[in-house]
């Protein structure tokens, strides 16, 4: 497969995952606002912006709806849902012959849906329907991808992009909530904090799955354990890294080559550290630093993928 094609598929997938994550984050937090005082709204939206990497040209103005509007519709803001979907489509457009026509049609439809939507300026109703439609659109594309595209190298690059983006997003959220709300683990959170922790679970679609595993007894250490180490829940960090590692192995197998030892080592080490990690051990050390370290490892893996498959130097490739 051409390196450029792998690059396009990877980013198509990451941008779609990002659009979905942003949509869900906005939806959950707009919803929580209905119950909240102005002061905590302030903190929450600063947190939302931080979770999206503090988009440039977008400072917290005190108006949640305005921020949500920009993060949803402003094509000029690179973090907005519209911009993410447009980037995903642009990447897909360059590899149209590699993806199935169903995939292209769904993505194209989502793009037109997003860009043609005219937000109603006069009322400040939550764009909830719209956000749900975006999430649904992305789910549809993922389903069509799984059922109409050959599960070969290209498909595996799509998985790599998706799980990479998801792992980073979940880790970033965990870090923010931990910094703000982590009190004494033996104490049950107060009502306000309780809502926030549920918000975290909802932002990762994890509320129901969490309740199944631990009942509705909300405790921060269990939430961190669940979102970090659960092997079965698709938005947990461990699950994402497992998926990432599986896809990388498949790609490595297809290439059938000697290079790539470093990538195997990096991804394998991260996977093992999550797979064999104990929550008590993790909580007893500096959790913030631990999460930062996972993010760093993800970045390293990303860079190594690029060095290996996309931006390699001609000399190394000729030797190998």
């Amino acid at each position: 497969m051409l390196s450029r094609v792998a690059d396009n598929l990877y980013w198509m997938s990451r941008y779609l995952e990002r659009a979905e994550h942003t949509a869900r984050l906005l939806d959950v937090n707009l919803n929580l606002m209905l119950d909240e005082s102005a002061s905590s709204a302030d903190r929450r939206w600063r947190r939302v912006l931080a979770a999206l990497g503090n988009p440039p040209n977008l400072a917290w103005s005190g108006d949640a709806y305005q921020v949500a509007q920009i993060l949803t519709f402003d094509p000029g803001n690179r973090s907005s849902i519209t911009a993410c979907v447009a980037c995903a489509r642009e990447n897909a457009r360059q590899v149209r012959e590699e993806i199935s026509s169903d995939q292209w049609q769904r993505l194209n439809r989502l793009f037109h849906q997003v860009t043609r939507h005219k937000p109603n300026e006069t009322d400040d109703v939550l764009p909830s329907d719209f956000l749900l439609a975006v999430i649904e659109g992305v789910h549809l594309i993922q389903g069509v991808t799984d059922s109409t595209m050959s599960h070969g190298e290209g498909w595996h690059f799509i998985q790599v992009g998706r799980y990479m983006e998801r792992a980073c997003a979940t880790v970033a959220l965990l870090g923010l909530y931990h910094r703000e709300f982590w009190g004494r683990p033996d104490q049950t959170p107060e009502a306000a904090e309780y809502l926030e922790w549920i918000g975290l679970l909802r932002s990762c679609t994890a509320f129901e799955a969490y309740c199944k595993a631990y009942t509705a007894d909300i405790s921060p250490d269990r939430i961190i354990e669940f979102l970090l180490l659960n092997p079965e829940f698709p938005h947990s960090v461990r699950y994402s890294i497992d998926g990432l590692q599986r896809a990388l192995e498949a790609i490595h197998g297809e290439g059938g080559k000697r290079r790539g030892a470093q990538l195997t080592r990096l991804a394998g080490r991260l996977q093992a550290s999550l797979g064999f990690g104990q929550i008590s051990e993790i909580l007893s050390q500096d959790v913030g630093a631990y999460l930062q370290d996972i993010l760093r490892q993800c970045r390293d893996i990303h860079e190594t993928i690029y060095e290996l498959y996309v931006n390699y130097a001609i000399q190394t490739a000729l030797a190998g």
Binding site: L2, S3, R4, E153, E254, G255, G256, Y312, I314, G320
Partner: peptide, 18 residues
């Protein structure tokens, strides 16, 4: 941008090398 030349030979960049 997918093609490179080296010693007067043209290669394409693929995920498995040139």
């Amino acid at each position: 941008r997918d093609l490179v030349t080296h010693d007067n030979v043209v290669y394409m960049r693929t995920t498995t090398g040139l």
